[in-house]
């Protein structure tokens, strides 16, 4: 049992605050770890890199290695790294960097040191922030509530398939595709079958978490030329298990749900905005007086909610 959430605003606003509320309301669904994928104001050039390092004692040298690899690929820092000031062994870093000449080649080299410091996300807008603890703890540590943006995803994890660690938390970036993230509630039962196939094709897995498969699987489908909608529809027949997952990119949020209709999602759509959560009571945190929600309760459902920002429409 995990909890997921999605939020789309019709103009740039307090999407961090809303996602924290949605996940705080669902903390009972999994307080092992909490994570967020937030689409903040796009950079005019370069991209945002979110990193997680695993041994704070080696922070400087590990960060130097990451920057060195960025430079190997024609990139360089556009801003000074921002590092959390917590006392935990693991730490998070935010960078803004010039776009690497080839993101796929860069991330392939960066992944060689992912046992020390891992790239969590890359994109002109996407920032993935995840950590152990509930929504409140993660929000306080990473200053989520003040993050402004247009849309995003949230996840509360009850670890069932792999260990409790910041690394195994959601969301997962659909590496190497910039600005694509995924959150998942459920269990993937043909995980090893797909993992073996994808690894034989050269894909790398950062964790033992079955949800990561969805991010890698979607990447593979995108590489094969499928649109997001086509990939979502295909996932329902190709992926076995009970699942509801949400995927986000620069253009909005998508959903796919398994053939057994086991994992819920409740949505409220209004004036170009979306509030989505595993439980209706979480939606109430944002819209306490609205009850015209829609339940994605049926089997084999897919959906895409596009971003309709007022700025984009103008």
């Amino acid at each position: 049992m995990c909890g997921i959430a999605g939020r789309i605003l019709n103009r740039e606003g307090e999407v961090g605050q809303d996602l924290v509320e949605l996940m705080d309301a669902q903390a009972h669904r999994g307080a092992d770890s909490t994570g967020f994928a937030i689409y903040t104001k796009p950079l005019p050039e370069g991209g945002k890199v979110r990193l997680m390092g695993f041994d704070r004692r080696n922070l400087n040298s590990d960060l130097d290695d990451v920057i060195k690899i960025l430079r190997n690929h024609g990139s360089d820092l556009l801003t000074d790294p921002q590092i959390d000031d917590a006392s935990s062994a693991h730490y998070s870093v935010r960078l803004e960097a010039k776009e690497p000449a080839n993101v796929e080649n860069w991330i392939a080299e960066a992944d060689l040191i992912s046992n020390r410091i891992e790239v969590l996300s890359y994109g002109i807008s996407l920032e993935i922030i995840k950590d152990v603890g509930d929504a409140e703890a993660v929000a306080d540590k990473h200053h989520l509530r003040t993050m402004q943006g247009t849309h995003g995803l949230g996840h509360a994890r009850l670890a069932t398939e792999s260990d409790v660690s910041p690394k195994a938390s959601h969301p997962f970036w659909a590496r190497p595709f910039p600005d694509v993230a995924i959150v998942h509630n459920g269990q993937i039962t043909n995980y090893y079958l797909w993992r073996d196939k994808l690894e034989l094709q050269g894909y790398r897995f950062m964790t033992e978490n079955d949800s990561e498969l969805l991010a890698v699987w979607i990447s593979d489908q995108k590489r094969k030329g499928l649109s997001l909608q086509q990939a979502l529809i295909k996932s329902v027949s190709e992926i076995d298990g009970v699942f509801t997952f949400m995927i986000s990119d620069l253009n909005g949020i998508g959903l796919a749900k398994d053939r057994f209709a086991m994992k819920p999602l409740v949505t409220l759509e209004s004036e170009g905005e979306l509030i989505a959560a595993t439980e209706e009571q979480a939606v109430r945190r944002i819209a306490p007086d609205r009850w015209d929600v829609f339940n994605y309760d049926g089997p084999s459902m897919t959906q895409i909610w596009p971003l309709h920002t007022i700025e984009a429409a103008a």
Binding site: E279, E280, Q281, V283, R284, P288
Partner: peptide, 10 residues
């Protein structure tokens, strides 16, 4: 009993 402010709670 009339219950108000239910907030879809479980």
């Amino acid at each position: 009993v009339v219950v108000t402010d239910t907030l879809s709670r479980h």
